[in-house]
């Protein structure tokens, strides 16, 4: 389903959910939960947003039922650790590639996805100072390296 323009701020988190439905349903679930919570704050009044959010809620309820035996879903504290570990794994993979001078699309995507998953961590509460810094760095790096590669420049 298409994300309404009013909810553009969560479109990449929703896309990340779709990309992880098979690969890691726990990540897919919490990305949807973030999109849901944030989407409700952005716009839950216009008909297109209400329709989108209602469908998103249906998906979340269904996923929670299907994954009820998974502790990362039934206990949010376990889910918090799962998302944080996954986000940092992507971050350190990309950081290692960066420090080794290996610049490619996959590392850019890893930096960017880690920043999105650090956003998702906000559903569990305020981000730690360390995670705030990781998020800022990952987002900046993904944009910087993307622009360098696009312009044929070597990132510094």
């Amino acid at each position: 389903m298409a994300v309404p323009p009013q909810l553009k701020a969560v479109q990449h988190h929703y896309k990340t959910a779709l990309e992880h439905d098979e690969r890691d349903p726990v990540v897919a679930y919490y990305c949807r939960l973030y999109a849901m919570q944030t989407g409700m704050k952005l716009d839950s009044k216009t008909p297109e947003c209400r329709k989108f959010l209602m469908k998103l809620m249906d998906q979340l309820e269904l996923m929670k039922k299907e994954l009820s035996t998974n502790e990362s879903i039934s206990q949010e504290i376990v889910g918090n650790a799962h998302i944080e570990n996954y986000a940092l794994k992507l971050f350190f993979y990309a950081d290692n590639e960066d420090r080794s001078g290996r610049f490619h699309k996959n590392m850019i995507k890893s930096f960017y996805t880690s920043s999105l998953l650090l956003d998702v961590l906000c559903v569990f509460g305020e981000l730690s100072e360390e995670n705030l810094q990781h998020r800022k760095y990952a987002r900046w790096k993904s944009t910087y390296i993307h622009n360098c590669l696009k312009n044929g420049e070597t990132p510094q």
């Binding site: 939960l33 849901m36 919570q37 409700m40 839950s44 009044k45 209400r50 959010l53 209602m54 809620m57 979340l60 309820e61 929670k64 949010e76």
Partner: peptide, 27 residues
């Protein structure tokens, strides 16, 4: 009509908030 549409929107908003709280075991 505007008032009716607004009432429907509010009711659906409440429904979403309740379902979200239930999903997160907050009620």
């Amino acid at each position: 009509t505007g008032t009716l549409a607004s009432s429907v929107a509010s009711a659906e908003q409440d429904e979403l908030s309740q379902r979200l709280a239930k999903l997160r075991d907050q009620i």
